[in-house]
Nucleic acid binder design. Structure first.
Lengths: 228, 228
DNA sequence: AGATAGTGTGTGAAAATTACACCATTAAAT
DNA sequence: ATTTAATGGTGTAATTTTCACACACTATCT
């Protein structure tokens, strides 16, 4: 039979959102020791009878009220002393989501006092090794931006090219040339130009586009998940 | 306090080597149930007081006698029923090594009957979900080949450009153009041409080259480990 | 009518990628 | 000494991709 240890698995989630031209992540305020009152990534312990992928979804839901994100594992942290109370190995996941003013963030367990969006710049110190986890995750999506349809999960269904560009700039942390960016994006052929325009802006309204997931998959003929 | 579960962590290793123009991986023959007598990736259980990175090194050593490889985590497998006797979550690592006829592979535990190199083509069915683990790892290094100095860990210290090319071809599973390949490799500037030539071949001896790790790091100005 | 703020567009230079074929050198066999 | 077998080593032109760069247009607000 298998030996038994007092080892614990957990999941930690780095959830990216994009709002007001800024890239943000989801943090919770902890309501339990250790690190009570600290800010942390949403994370909790994996149950016996659920896969880690399932656990990631459940835990995120319980801590933030968010459901049905497409979560992707990116690294496992297994230093001996990363948790002050015992051995905890954690599998880190990221997900990307459109921040939607409507959707309220409300933890369904007492473990988190609240959940909220925080800009990725000027992040405060986080509980445990969560700052390191965040950095690792941020590097990961930065790299994947080039070969995974990451950006479109962060934008509303209909978006302008300028919004898309400013998202790229936020993730890559660099300015891009407008003409070259548009040329390249459009040349891929997976953006569908709509007959609609932006509304409610006090300047010339921009055309709206949609991401065509099927064309993307055909073009890159991967299953959009090739990197596992 | 932390809850206690009968959960077990393990490590599984996909160790690549290159010999006689063929890419190979290291397998063991299991000497214990479950899957007794099956072929499997080297893998075993993580102890309480060691980090997963340390565990990976230790376990590989115990099962194969190999030491001091540079092991890199690539994915964690956490399906509920991946192990028939209980819940086992496994963190998979890969490493690359020069196969060296001299170095004998000898397990230092009874758990593995023997360890040996097997070509990555025509792999037999492996124990547990190890076939899936292998595939995931192979895809990973295939992708990383372009931005990590993976190839040079598989070759002897001094190598010819033809050897380097045939390694690329083995990993990418495609033919490459000789002139373009050489031009490109040399243009990077991290290959150092030696004054030596190949010996003992019955045809024109090729120049030998060395990989210059420092120049590589300077050129790509990453710490060679950016992908974590 | 003018100010404001962001939209939308093209061209040329430079760099990188691709396709492609033949002679040179060596050791072994005759 | 000659031949053979096997691999080493090299250049050029066409194409594609990347990069740098600036101005006129449109809608709204005052």
């Amino acid at each position: 039979m298998l030996p038994t240890f007092d080892s614990v698995f957990s999941i930690d989630c780095v959830i990216f959102g994009f709002e007001a031209g800024e890239l943000k992540i989801l943090l919770i305020e902890r309501n339990e020791e250790p690190f009570k009152d600290w800010l942390a990534l949403p994370g909790y312990i994996v149950e016996q009878d659920e896969s880690i992928d399932d656990a990631a979804e459940r835990i995120l839901y319980e801590l933030t009220g968010l459901r049905d994100l497409h979560m992707q594992q990116f690294h496992t942290f297994g230093e001996v002393n990363r948790h002050p109370q015992g051995r905890v190995i954690t599998v880190a996941y990221y997900a990307l989501i459109r921040i939607n003013g409507q959707k309220e963030l409300r933890p369904v367990t007492q473990f988190a006092r609240k959940a909220f969006w925080h800009p990725v710049n000027e992040l405060p110190k986080l509980a445990f090794d969560h700052s390191e986890i965040f950095n690792t995750g941020f590097n990961k999506i930065r790299r994947r931006l080039n070969y995974q349809p990451i950006a479109f999960e962060l934008l509303p269904e209909k978006f302008t090219l300028t919004q898309l560009q400013s998202l790229y700039e936020a993730i890559l942390n660099m300015k891009l040339d407008k003409r070259n960016f548009r040329k390249k994006m459009l040349s891929y052929g997976f953006l569908k130009e709509l007959d609609e325009k932006q509304k409610g802006v006090s300047y010339r309204a921009a055309k709206l586009y949609k991401f065509d997931r099927r064309k993307y998959a055909k073009i890159f003929h991967n299953d959009m998940n090739l990197d596992k």
